[in-house]
Design a protein around this nucleic acid. Structure first.
Ligand code: SF4
Ligand code: SF4
Lengths: 163, 163
DNA sequence: TGAACGCGGACCAATTCGGTCCTGATTCAA
DNA sequence: TTGAATCAGGACCGAATTGGTCCGCGTTCA
């Protein structure tokens, strides 16, 4: 249930690559495809997707290519992946375009909503620089909060508000 | 990328249902299917799957049905879902049957491994009783550790060990 | 003895996914 | 000015997955 699509992987690799060869930045599809061993055609679409998402800027013509539009520390994991994942929710009813054919009396709806919110929140703190430098250490190693506890906490908070 | 399969949802609903009507426990497929508005045929398979996973016990014959084989607090979310999700990893190379056609020089492999381990660890603390009682509150609301920090911490720890 | 029930294989239609191909637009450089 | 390099993106394909149905079998209890 957690698996990212292949396109997402390509996207992550691409961002990784372009961040490393940060030199003065511009990288063509062909160049990247060969360097990272990715089918050029599909990589092209992936990069187009990233551009549409605002993560890359494109330069056409000879000598052109793509360039990261902002520093890698400011790019979230979810930003990179989102264009290639039809939905990021745990459950279809939690989606924007979000209908569920089943009747409205689903006992799973509420807990899943809480779970979904928590998961997304966790992931939203993942930035792409972590995929580059293992030594970029965070020393704030705090207590080992699990989804279980946090989810429960939030849920009960909501339940209190609701009555 | 997080979406659970429909079968998993049915499984979760089923466990929920059987835990609520804990009375003396036994519930037939037809009964459950009607009560929760689930196609009986497919629900049958779902329950079979849960039985194979050891979560349910079955009683054949007239008056038979399924019964939870252990208290709901001891059933993990992942236990319920696992039989219906072909892989629980973020990435295919991280799987048991786990080949990736791409060459062995994937720059995404290591960070994904860390991420995957963390996600699974988080989810392994989710038990099914949380899907029932919002008031089963945990007061240990500790610091707001994110995947980001913990993942980085573990990764760098591994990096230290590795050299 | 027969109805209620679990067991499980065969099958199906729709969707998704990874990937290829091909046809433009641009733009720079020779 | 020409043409190669490069992005842009639609059309298409085969394979796999998914959600679901159907049907026949074995078991067990009333
Ligand atoms: S309403 Fe229930 S069955 Fe439908 S998508 Fe939401 S959780 Fe799943
Ligand atoms: S090796 Fe790389 S491309 Fe292959 S599954 Fe693992 S992370 Fe993805």
């Amino acid at each position: 249930m957690f698996k990212v699509s292949r396109k997402s992987e390509y996207a992550l690799i691409a961002v990784q690559h372009m961040a490393r060869r940060a030199r003065d930045g511009v990288t063509s599809v062909a160049e990247l495809a060969q360097a990272e061993n990715i089918p050029p055609d599909i990589l092209a679409k992936v990069l187009q997707g990233l551009k549409r998402a605002g993560l890359l800027t494109a330069a056409k013509g000879a000598g052109g290519g793509y360039r990261l539009s902002r520093p890698v520390q400011e790019i979230q994991f979810l930003d990179v992946v989102r264009p290639f994942e039809e939905q990021l929710s745990v459950v279809t009813c939690q989606n924007d375009h979000g209908g569920c054919d089943r009747g409205g009396d689903c006992t799973l709806r509420d807990p899943m909503k809480v779970l979904n919110a928590f998961v997304l929140r966790q992931f939203s703190n993942l930035t792409m620089d972590m995929f580059l430098s293992p030594h970029k250490l965070v020393h704030h190693a705090r207590a080992d909060v699990t989804i279980a506890e946090s989810a429960l906490h939030r849920w009960s908070a909501e339940a209190d508000v609701a009555g």
